[in-house]
Design a protein around this nucleic acid. Structure first.
Lengths: 139, 139
DNA sequence: TACTTTAATCAGAGTCTCTGACCAAAAGCA
DNA sequence: TGCTTTTGGTCAGAGACTCTGATTAAAGTA
């Protein structure tokens, strides 16, 4: 079985479950929106950076941020350091989703660890983190 | 860094690279089409099965198969075992893409192994295969 | 035969994503 | 300074993907 599919299958499982948990808690966001939302940091993040991190075009990122803004999950504020730019910031409303997502993630990781054993789970994480070094275009 | 994102990043890298290689070799398929194409077996596969394996609705699978059929990569033949069903089969034209994809996959795996080392690469594959047992809804 | 399930399609809509063109502010430079 | 290039972001338009709901036809079942 090819390595792409091997990564794809558990990845989708995580995405589906976390999104379902977040939706069930009343946060009405889509997968694409969540992928952008996830990359916004504390101090706010520029659209261009968001686009690069999520690996979509500026237009796509802008489209998703528009929706998130309309729903009240993010806001755009002027970037004090650059008159052209604006910082996308997560609102208090969206922050409520963080613990929900984290709980589901913890649940998933616990299940996986039960199936793989502690040792293999650690190896998996280590290998994936190293892989990020050469496959994450954002770094 | 959450386990979903850790899986997502290298997965996208594989998908992008394999698709780029296949496209560069003159096979004009999209990622979504490729995901369906990948699941069709030698003797042909029913649309319903394809949809389940690729985790999309029958309608979506049908839409993608329509396109693949129009482009000459698959054909639909009656299923001798069931008058309602048809088997989606890969054509000779599409089979030419298989070695192209496999070569790129081998190249990627070699790069990863160079970065992770043989031992960790083996552990990664082992862990992912085990994870498939509990996360692949098609099994 | 009548009822239920299964395989597939049709119709319609919403979502995601892209390319290309454009504007305005910032940065680089003669 | 004034000119050019780069960068951050938006507008417009189109293509691709995916879904829900309804329908047809064949199989399976009581």
């Amino acid at each position: 079985m090819n390595i792409g599919l091997l990564l794809f299958i558990p990845n989708r499982d995580v995405e589906n479950r976390v999104l379902a948990a977040v939706n069930a808690a009343g946060f009405d966001v889509t997968q694409a929106q969540a992928r952008v939302l996830m990359r916004i940091d504390q101090e706010g993040t520029r659209l261009t950076v968001l686009a690069e991190a999520a690996q979509v075009t500026k237009q796509t990122a802008g489209f998703l941020v528009d929706q998130l803004e309309k729903a009240g999950y993010v806001e755009r504020v002027p970037d004090p350091a650059d008159g052209r730019a604006r910082l996308v910031k997560v609102t208090a409303k969206a922050l409520g989703a963080v613990p929900v997502a984290n709980e589901e993630l913890a649940r998933i990781e616990a299940e996986w660890e039960r199936h793989l054993g502690k040792r293999r789970m650690g190896q998996l994480r280590e290998a994936l983190e190293m892989l990020g070094e050469i496959t994450d275009p954002y770094r």
